[in-house]
């Protein structure tokens, strides 16, 4: 008889460790997987995600790149086109703007422009989000920009378990995948299954069931929405929280089914409110038969219409927090306190 070992049954590790474990598993299984990025070698990555991988896999597979985001991303694209499976780490997602040409004009479009005759199985990892006091050029949440680009897949893990499963799923995907990792989540801990498993791309997850209100959130906002949902219980509001997980492709079915059930929708995201994930999801509902089930206007909660500020109070005020999410929910029931 095998007794269940609680040590292994609940494997707790951090989000960063889970990503590292995924990379190590993939590199062990497939010699074509290589890591590229700035200071990912002996330094271990700006957020210590790659940490000691260079010692395990050597500098040929954990390649420090020069500070050349456009060139580095392009090299990863070219390598992916010709047999390697590169994981390219942008030091901050903000720096992906230096590489937009290679991501948007090349990686995303090559398969289509070449009539399906080419594959670009590259994975871009992008530490993103605010809350670290790094100010306007190191704190943005620009995932929605890439949601606008056919040919890309855009993921946002909110838990260590998903961070590992999504990276492995991204590597198994034959097309370019961008994974936005929230910097504040790197140290959060949670259960992570052992071994190789894939988190399905394009599948949202209902993290909390409820009957009165659907909150769609991604990345760190999932945790804030869950916390807000708990505070709403005492007020008689039962909120369902959907972890979006994937911005592109977006899981229409899960969102619409929830809205049909609850009749109310709030979208919470860290990107600037205008032209963002919230607009897409709101339109999705408004265009669908779920519209007929809406019993209140749709509410978007996104970042303030300003660059991410430096002052900690301003920085906090610029993006949705637990209290603002709860207040938003009350607005939909007109029970403001």
């Amino acid at each position: 008889m095998n007794a269940i070992n609680p040590e292994t049954a609940l494997r707790t590790m951090s989000y960063a460790e889970a990503i590292r474990e995924a990379m190590a598993l993939a590199m062990e299984a497939d010699p074509a997987v290589v890591l590229m990025g700035e200071d990912i070698g002996v330094y271990g990555g700006a957020f210590q995600v790659t940490l000691d991988l260079i010692e395990r896999f050597g500098p040929d597979r954990v390649m420090d790149t020069p500070i050349s985001e456009l060139g580095g991303a392009g090299v990863a694209v070219g390598a992916a086109l010709t047999g390697l499976k590169p994981i390219y780490e942008f030091q901050f997602s903000d720096f992906a703007m230096l590489a937009m040409e290679q991501i948007v004009n090349q990686a995303a479009k090559l398969r289509y422009m070449l009539g399906g005759e080419a594959a670009v199985p590259v994975v871009f990892r992008l530490p993103s989000g605010s809350g670290t006091g790094a100010a306007a050029q190191h704190s943005q949440s620009i995932e929605a920009w890439f949601g606008h680009v056919p040919g890309l897949k855009v993921l946002q893990p909110s838990t260590p378990e998903d961070a590992k499963g999504m990276l492995l799923a991204a590597l198994a995907d034959p097309d370019p995948v961008m994974i936005f990792e929230h910097k504040l989540l790197y140290k959060t801990r949670g259960h992570v299954p052992a071994g190789r498993y894939l988190t399905p791309i394009g599948k949202a997850l209902v993290r909390r069931t409820g009957t009165d209100l659907t909150i769609v959130a991604g990345s760190i906002m999932v945790h804030r929405a869950l916390e807000a949902a708990e505070t709403l219980v005492a007020e008689g509001i039962s909120a369902e929280v959907i972890d979006l997980r994937s911005i592109r492709p977006i899981d229409h079915a899960t969102i619409l089914a929830s809205v049909r059930k609850t009749g109310r929708l709030m979208v919470v995201y860290e990107g600037v409110k205008a032209f963002g994930v919230g607009a897409e999801i709101s339109a999705l509902v408004a265009e669908s038969d779920a519209f007929d089930y809406l019993d209140a206007p749709i509410l978007r909660l996104g970042a303030a219409d300003a660059p991410v500020p430096y002052n900690p109070d301003l920085e906090r005020a610029a993006v949705p927090q637990v209290d603002t999410i709860a207040a938003g929910a009350r607005r939909l029931f007109r029970r403001e306190v």
Partner: peptide, 23 residues
């Protein structure tokens, strides 16, 4: 690996292809 509509677009891609060969 393709003609390219972006001036300079093919240069990093070529380097990536060379990296693949080497690795």
């Amino acid at each position: 690996l393709g003609a390219n509509g972006i001036v300079g677009g093919g240069l990093p891609i070529a380097v990536g292809a060379a990296l693949s060969a080497k690795r």
